[in-house]
Design a protein around this nucleic acid. Structure first.
Lengths: 122, 122
DNA sequence: CACATAGATTGACATTCATCGATATAGCTG
DNA sequence: CAGCTATATCGATGAATGTCAATCTATGTG
């Protein structure tokens, strides 16, 4: 806490002092654990290649994409794409469904709105 | 491109083949540069302490917070907080205004909606 | 069963990043 | 001007991350 804050607190009442830098709010700050949980979602979005993966999955008319069609347009190796997809699934953004030999990835319904909600509720 | 895609492409027309993993979409993928630009915003949000900073700034009734009141509740050193604030400013999320000795940080108006827009437009 | 293919996992490596201590800069005050 | 205070910048360090090559697992096919 800075000195100006102390000065403010010493004032038991009365109008705001000028020359004060600010009055600290006593509202509850976003908790550490909750902040970490929310940061996980944005970490998942914080990579250009993962954003491109999402754009491909989203553009797919069927709503689904398999890994083999996600690897080529990104010019990345197959293990790297699998790694990115895993991060997106663990963040709750993508859904993974294995049918036979192939794995299909799709957007979790409503997840974009959910993320927008996280922002609004900060 | 996987073998099943090749098989699909070799079919000049006709109904969808079963046993195909997927049909690659020819829609334009999010470009590399655009993806990098958008990822910058999410990188800025991808840290728990930066989310907490945003929550404090947002909760402030005046809409502004100075660094001295942002340092204590996060239990971080002053240089670290300055560093995080710089990242948020460079991402276009926070606005910095220096008045006298103090620096005041405030949310850029409408930025939350802008970020939600980035998500929708992926 | 033997083999091929789709996808996941592992281990290594280089890069990026969060954090801190020390220092620099800029504005205020005597 | 000298000293103090708020904030920014710098340099170093340890941790996290993106990428790849190699390998593993599971499913389908002869």
């Amino acid at each position: 806490m800075c000195i100006m804050d102390v000065m403010n607190l010493l004032q038991t009442a009365g109008p705001a002092v000028d020359a004060s830098c600010c009055v600290p709010s006593d509202k509850p700050v976003l908790g550490i654990e909750e902040a970490q949980r929310k940061a996980l979602v944005f970490k998942a979005l914080a990579d250009p290649n993962r954003l491109r993966l999402l754009s491909i999955v989203k553009a797919e008319a069927s709503g689904e994409s398999c890994v083999c069609d996600l690897t080529e347009p990104l010019d990345l190796g197959q293990p790297t794409v699998s790694h990115h997809l895993k991060i997106l699934v663990e963040a709750g953004i993508l859904h993974r469904e294995k049918r036979g030999t192939w794995a299909y990835y799709s957007l979790v319904p409503g997840v974009m709105d959910d993320i927008a909600g996280i922002l609004s509720a900060l």
